[in-house]
Design a protein around this nucleic acid. Structure first.
Lengths: 383, 383
DNA sequence: TCATCTATCGCAAACGTTTCCGAAAACGTA
DNA sequence: TACGTTTTCGGAAACGTTTGCGATAGATGA
């Protein structure tokens, strides 16, 4: 009366001892061992994702055997394995990653916290991260802090609650305490900083040539003949702002140009800020003849304003800025920039993080610098 | 010899019967009941995330009581609850969302599949999705298909394996079979389409005014005096391309203008495509005097090329395109566009999806149209 | 004094996997 | 026939949480 779970035949079945009190059977045709469960015909449950238990029941074997069959275990009969795979395909089995993650203690997911995905730099970084992550079999969970320290903290907590295997983060411009990071760092969770990093934490970091880049931009302006170069820096707390400002100062010093506080403005990346700065500079008795901004968007806003005012670029004022974008190349005059290769930044950061995750014990934090590139365009090309 | 788990005193402890064979104790000071576990001093395990079991052990109560204390259950003593909360804070307890999700059968996570996060439209959509999702307590998992149907399928599978509660998707431009979606739709997983939707599936959809938008753009060009308007359409398979092309044709028909196949080009959004199309049109015996493109990037590429060739915009050729971006407003001449409000699209899509998730039984799919806005700029302003 | 009620709490099952441990059959050897 | 070995599999625990089902002690009432 009992049929083979594979071929369905009855006449080929012979009893073959007992396993843990359950009658064990053997199909001579299929060379397959299995045991019988009391058939439960009234289990018309609602449709659900099939589990290894479902597979086990239809084949009359145990879930552990199914698990072994699907995980390339050595200690399993080839016939059984094939049967399991057949039924798994038939029932469209998909392993429940939640259960796997819970058991293994790892989710194969990395968390990303960025200030704003709508900024091309971060969108590029995210794209780079996703490329590397998906190639390595990791999923990506992205959160935006919207430049709010509080939101950033909540984001980090949420990602940690989801038990991400590691974290990639670029801080808010208002972030100057890092307790929300330290907490998890102490628990041993791999964290990699990029772009807006934090020096007081012992994490791996991916940064750009902030100093070198602004130095190159400002030196370029000087070589084009500028002698009074104004700087639109970022928020004072932000580390990369400081570095970029230092590059600006170093370039001036190299060419024996004075550093004038009148010409240095700390913006918070808002449009009003850059226009205020510009207007202040234009009202000085001695106008600047060059402008360096740490964010290309500020430079573009200034270009638009300068054009309205009828001030000639680059003849009266030349501009150069950090960060490239299609927009920088397409406005008139096109903007001289220092390209940061955001996609590369993302790729590197993800690569390092995954390395940190896999080799957690022997990993030692280090800092990777992504080389940038000076792209000279019309806004500074006087010659 | 036994001390209270709260105040630590020994003299206030009295025996208070048994619970399931375990000695129950009572602290007269704290009015707290608890029982004792055999102390296990040699459990110096490696540091790990604290669990409710850890809390239970330090307090001498059972995990279920801890769970009830942390979940606002009614049937628990207030003193016990407070103690649990105190210890939970002390040990920095964070609930393991994996375990919760596994038990509850829901992850409070929604999956998003988009072609390319670096395109401002999709970045805006994602930002809108994240805003709504985080406000509703949902996390967001984002995948890029990179316009590859195969990658899209893998993305969907990965998200489903992670047991996301719902899916937001905008299809690849090469996607014209939808088995990978149907499969999961049959299993009852809420799916909402946006932008590049699919008519053959019974899902909720968030779309733009594709027909009305291109109609408005083309009608605007006609009113500016254009009589031979070329169209740079999208991939033929893409539904929104067809709709937008229909809007173009309808506008021509309304004003009794002929539809000339010479003037219709199907691009795949690549730069070469748009330049090829432009060059073909310019070589016609009768050049077009207006160009409509379904993607603003194509229009911008054409503007750059036209300027190089010395062709005057809008006098010789006027342009108007779908989709707004900062770039469109800043190039010269600035580009007339039909703004799609990507952020709103994302917000609406997420809202509908979450509604679908929560009210799964009574939800009926519908289509929401996000109204757009014609923004007239220099590229078409002849008057 | 006894039975009943209420307030708390513990046990165990469940979610879906993986894996250690052991058990039995089959096989090989003497 | 009597062993030991190999092959193959099942049971059960574990991951961390929630929850139905009791169980107990103290309070209440008769």
């Amino acid at each position: 009366m009992i049929a083979c779970t594979k071929c369905g035949k009855v006449e080929t079945i012979v009893k073959s001892g007992f396993v843990r009190g359950k009658q064990r059977l053997y199909c001579k045709d299929c060379e397959l061992y299995f045991s019988v469960n009391p058939p439960n015909p009234s289990t018309n449950k609602k449709p659900h994702q099939t589990t290894i238990v479902d597979i086990a029941k239809t084949l009359g074997i145990s879930p552990s055997t199914v698990s072994r069959a699907l995980n390339n275990s050595q200690e399993i009969n080839e016939n059984t394995r094939n049967e399991v795979i057949r039924v798994a395909n038939e029932l469209d089995y998909r392993p429940n990653l939640l259960a796997q993650s819970l058991h293994r203690g790892e989710t194969h997911t990395i968390g990303v916290v960025i200030p704003d995905i709508q900024r091309p730099f971060f969108a590029g970084v995210v794209a780079g991260i996703q490329k590397v992550a998906s190639e390595a079999g990791y999923r990506v969970m992205i959160c935006q802090s919207n430049e709010s320290h509080n939101t950033e903290t909540l984001n980090v907590q949420a990602l940690m609650a989801s038990r991400v295997d590691g974290l990639l983060i670029s801080h808010t411009k208002e972030t100057n305490s890092f307790e929300h990071i330290k907490l998890h760092l102490r628990k041993g969770i791999p964290i990699v900083h990029f772009d807006r990093v934090c020096d007081e934490l012992e994490t791996a970091k991916v940064i750009q040539e902030d100093f070198e880049g602004s130095f190159a931009l400002v030196e370029h302006l000087i070589k084009q003949g500028c002698r009074r170069i104004a700087a639109c820096a970022g928020p004072e707390d932000l580390l990369i702002s400081q570095k970029r400002l230092n590059g600006y100062k170093a370039a001036l010093q190299k060419y024996d140009l004075p550093i004038e506080t009148d010409l240095i403005f700390h913006s918070s990346f808002k449009k009003e800020d850059s226009l205020n700065a510009l207007n202040n500079w234009l009202e000085l008795s001695q106008r600047p003849d060059g402008i360096f901004t740490v964010h290309y968007a500020n430079a573009i806003e200034m270009i638009m304003s300068l054009k309205q005012k009828g001030i000639k670029i680059p003849d009266e004022i030349a501009l150069a800025a950090f960060g490239d974008d299609l927009l920088a190349s397409m406005i008139e005059p096109s903007l001289t920039v220092y390209n940061q290769f955001p996609f590369t930044v993302g790729q590197e950061a993800a690569t390092i993080l995954i390395d940190n995750i896999i080799n957690k014990e022997i990993f030692v934090p280090f800092t990777k610098v992504i080389k940038g590139e000076l792209i000279v365009r019309q806004s500074s090309n006087k010659i």
